[in-house]
C-alpha cells in the first residue's frame, strides 16, 4: 500500500458515499445513469470473485464488501425505491456496444488464458468505459447537479491516483501491469473533458451546463 493508492481508494469511497447521500437526501436519482451503475456492479462482481477464496488484508476485504454492497444498493435505489425519479429516456446509452467488444478483448488480450484471469481482465476493461453512459446522459440532459459533479470528480480522481500508484510501484517495487495501466489511462482520459468543466465551473460555484 502507498499514499497514492490509499488516496485513490478513499476518493473512490468518497464518490460512492456522495452518490448515496445525493440519492438519500434528495430522495431522487435524477441525472444518475442506472446503466453505469449496472456496469460498475458487473465490474465489482467480476473483479471480486476471489473475495472468499483469497484473503489479502482486512482493509482489502472490507473495501470489496463495501463496494459490492453499495453498488447493488444504488441499483436498488435507482430501479426500485426511487424509480419514479429515474430518467430512463436520457439514460439511453447502448451498453451492449461496450460489453461485447470489452468481452472479446478480454479473451484476446490478457496475462493468462484462464477463466479467473479473463474475468478479471474483463472487469478491468469494462471499468475503463463504465462511466460512458453517465457522461452520455449528462451530455443529453445538458447539465449535471453540482452534487453529481462532485461524485464524478471523485470517481475520476480515483483512477488518476491509481496511475500515480502504478508509477510509484514501478520504481519502488518494479511492479508493472500493462493491462491495468492502459485501461486506467483510457478511463482517466474519458474524464478529462469533465475535469476541465469541473475545475473551470464547479470550483467557481457555477453549475455544469454543456451546450446541449
Amino acid at each position: 500500500m502507498n499514499i497514492f493508492r490509499l488516496c485513490g481508494d478513499m476518493s473512490h469511497l468518497a464518490a460512492i458515499i456522495i452518490l448515496l447521500l445525493k440519492m438519500w437526501k434528495t430522495r431522487s436519482v435524477a441525472g444518475i445513469s442506472g446503466k453505469s451503475q449496472i456496469l460498475f456492479a458487473t465490474v465489482f462482481t467480476a473483479r471480486y470473485l476471489d473475495l472468499f477464496t483469497s484473503f489479502i488484508s482486512i482493509y482489502n476485504t472490507c473495501m470489496k464488501v463495501f463496494f459490492i454492497g453499495t453498488v447493488y444498493f444504488t441499483i436498488y435505489l435507482i430501479y426500485m425505491k426511487f424509480k419514479a425519479t429515474y430518467d430512463s429516456n436520457h439514460d439511453s446509452f447502448r451498453v451492449e456496444f461496450l460489453i461485447v467488444p470489452v468481452g472479446g478483448l478480454a479473451f484476446l488480450v490478457n496475462h493468462e488464458f484462464a477463466p479467473l484471469e479473463i474475468i478479471w481482465t474483463f472487469s478491468i476493461y469494462l471499468e475503463s468505459v463504465a462511466i460512458l453512459p453517465q457522461l452520455f446522459m449528462i451530455s443529453k440532459t445538458g447539465e449535471a447537479e453540482t452534487i453529481t459533479s462532485h461524485y464524478l470528480f471523485a470517481l475520476g480522481s480515483y483512477r488518476a491516483l491509481y496511475l500515480c500508484n502504478w508509477i510509484y510501484r514501478y520504481y519502488a517495487e518494479g511492479f508493472f501491469d500493462l493491462i491495468a495501466v492502459v485501461a486506467g489511462v483510457v478511463q482517466t482520459i474519458l474524464y478529462c473533458d469533465f475535469f476541465y468543466l469541473y475545475i473551470t465551473k464547479v470550483m467557481k460555484g457555477k453549475k455544469i451546463s454543456l451546450p446541449a
Partner: peptide
Amino acid sequence: DPAELVKDEL
C-alpha cells in the same frame, strides 16, 4: 508474474 501481484489492488 505481474498477474499475481496486481490482485492485491481493489
